[in-house]
Simulated scan of single mutants.
Amino acid sequence: MSGEARRTQLAANLQQVRERVAAACTAAGRRPEEVRVIAVTKQYPASDVRILAELGVRDVGENRDQEAAPKATECRDLDLVWHFVGQLQTNKARSVVRYADVVHSVDRLRLVTELGRRVRAAGRTLTCLVQVNLDPESEQGVLGPRGGADPADVPGLAEAIEAEEGLSLGGVMAVAPRQGDPRAAFDRLKAVADDLQARYPHATVVSAGMSGDLEAAVERGATHLRIGTALLGNRGLIVG
């Protein structure tokens, strides 16, 4: 696909996503400005990131460090906010803090400590979201690992993030279970988010919703949507 054809395709996809978000906000009695779209560009090249930036997208998400690090380097001349949205191994923290502005998947104390240590060494600051597990069955491997902390553990993780120099608490993130009504799952997340904001008024981010369930997420208070397929197409598509 030529560069111009890809730009036309991405522009059309972006317009459709923006229309869906606007409609969802109207239905929920919210303003579209309250919701930010993160373009999850995993498995797509840096050239797509550049096109999306030209189209006004400033938030870019990646879920694997080995892909994200070189892509962020290639796009370092752009004014972007990089979100790490995937499961994060502790041994990848040193690399991730060099380019990420926000890590969405903080779900254990050891990771908090390592991110703090590495971000201070890098001379940067990092916003952290506590990932909440909304699907207990995933812990047993029934539906596959999804990650996330038990809701009861969120206050302790939030306190640890706030205590770690170089880190700041941004809010919460979750992935809806593969089965069941996503609205019910996002209701559980909203309860956790409301409790967290009562303790930490600045922790206003609710990262929830992807291409298939963004309307449910907006209805239940999401502030950030992680959109991949609806923007870039099905994963594995070869883009020239």
Rank of each mutant, 00 (worst) to 15 (best):
T113V: 15
M1Y: 11
G221Y: 14
A163R: 14
G116D: 07
G240V: 12
L196M: 02
A230R: 04
E164C: 11
A68F: 10
D59H: 10
T90C: 04
P136G: 08
E74S: 12
P201M: 09
E137C: 15
V49E: 03
G29W: 11
M1D: 13
V49S: 00
Q89G: 09
D150A: 15
H104A: 06
L10E: 00
R110D: 15
D194V: 13
E215P: 04
G166L: 05
Q131T: 07
Q66K: 11
V35I: 13
V239A: 03
V21L: 08
P182V: 09
D59A: 07
M210V: 12
R118E: 14
V192D: 03
V102P: 00
L196K: 00
G3H: 09
S207P: 13
A22I: 07
L78F: 07
A69Y: 11
E54H: 11
L134V: 05
H83F: 03
C25D: 04
E164N: 05
Q197I: 09
D48I: 05
G236P: 01
R58A: 06
V37C: 09
S2K: 08
R64Q: 14
Q197H: 12
T127D: 00
A122W: 00
G228M: 06
R110Q: 14
Y99Q: 08
R235L: 11
P155I: 04
A222W: 04
A198Q: 10
P45F: 02
R146L: 13
P70T: 11
